[in-house]
């Protein structure tokens, strides 16, 4: 097959998304938050259905019921941690409280790789395009090992190794994502990522923050340009076409929308940003997307996804 450009687009409208957000908010409030998993499913359904690749929309096949089960497990887990802190504060002496808090911090850190693993498995298994599932085939113990090894190096190098940590994690996780029989690959390296961030940091200081937009652009470029997809017969490469000036426009307007609408404009900020991202990723290659085969299995345990939401850390590595 000849090389050609593929089309990735976001069609969502701010007003449509706004109504979904408001309805979700109403239902979450009157159910004291228990509607959250269904609200999340509705949100993802909308955003996926408004994103198309080669004119076919993505589909989120996860359900509120699945995520509710995970939500309850995550809720019980957090409640137990809370209870541990509370009871140690009211029963124990000062030293005992400190030990409890330390142990809880360690538990939090220890479950991060488990959360990453579980939430990728669930989300990818529930992402579908042209009837073909995505999948995450990473190995849990490998990810845990990688995480703690790199965390250790990051601590003993006073954070400098953090750039390598981030890239190793991203390489591992994205390298184990598949779209049917086609495999993603991420090719980041610590040196580049460290230099990019150091440059961004220093220039942002020198330019009194103006360079932040170009730094953001560099981060976006580094994410997109190192991502590729291959099957047995071909490859697809990603290329960012965003400029620092465009990023400045996006982020400044987003900021103004949030400030002047007291946060109500979030829906427009989200749709604008998604549109921007999709419009600035060029996809070129020779994969025949009509030849993808269903290879990935289903996976319906959403506990880790809900846990990730509770701790509020982003899905994307």
């Amino acid at each position: 097959m000849e090389k050609r450009l593929f089309e990735l687009r976001f069609h969502g409208k701010g007003m449509e998304y706004f109504k979904i957000i408001i309805v979700n908010l109403i239902l979450c409030i009157i159910t004291l938050g228990f509607y959250y998993p269904w609200a999340k499913a509705k949100t993802l359904n909308y955003l996926y259905s408004q994103t198309s690749f080669e004119n076919q929309p993505f589909v989120f096949t996860g359900t509120g019921n699945e995520m509710f089960k995970g939500f309850i497990k995550a809720f019980i887990f957090i409640a137990l941690l809370y209870a541990a802190v509370f009871s140690s504060v009211f029963l124990g002496s000062g030293g005992f409280v400190q030990i409890t808090i330390l142990v809880i911090y360690l538990i939090f850190i220890a479950i991060i790789p488990l959360i990453l693993h579980g939430s990728y498995r669930y989300r990818m298994a529930k992402t579908q395009w042209s009837g073909i599932r995505f999948g995450y085939s990473g190995n849990r113990s490998e990810l845990v090992k990688l995480f703690f090894r790199d965390l250790f190096f990051t601590i003993i190098t006073f954070g400098i190794y953090g750039a390598w940590f981030a890239m190793n994690l991203r390489n591992y996780i994205l390298g184990h994502v598949q779209m049917g029989n086609a495999k993603f690959k991420y090719n980041g390296n610590g040196v580049d990522y460290f230099v990019l961030n150091l440059k961004g940091y220093l220039l942002s200081i020198v330019t009194l923050g103006i360079y932040i937009f170009w730094w953001q652009k560099d981060l976006f470029d580094y994410y997109v340009n190192n991502l590729s997809l291959s099957d047995d017969e071909g490859n697809m490469y990603c290329k960012s076409s965003a400029t620092g000036g465009e990023f400045a426009g996006l982020l400044i307007v987003n900021f103004l929308i949030i400030v002047f609408t007291l946060g109500l404009g979030y829906a427009w900020v989200a749709t604008r940003t998604l549109e921007f991202v999709m419009n600035h990723i060029l996809l070129k290659g020779d994969i025949d997307f009509e030849k993808l085969i269903q290879t990935q299995t289903d996976y319906s345990d959403a506990t880790a996804t809900d846990m990730a939401d509770v701790f509020d850390f982003g899905f994307i590595i």
């Binding site: 069609h11 198309s52 096949t61 298994a125 579908q128 599932r133 269903q294 289903d298």
Partner: peptide, 15 residues
């Protein structure tokens, strides 16, 4: 779901 003058109808299973 609707997208660009097309209607997409999915069976509620996985896949």
């Amino acid at each position: 779901s609707f997208l660009e003058n097309k209607l997409f109808v999915y069976l509620d299973t996985s896949p």
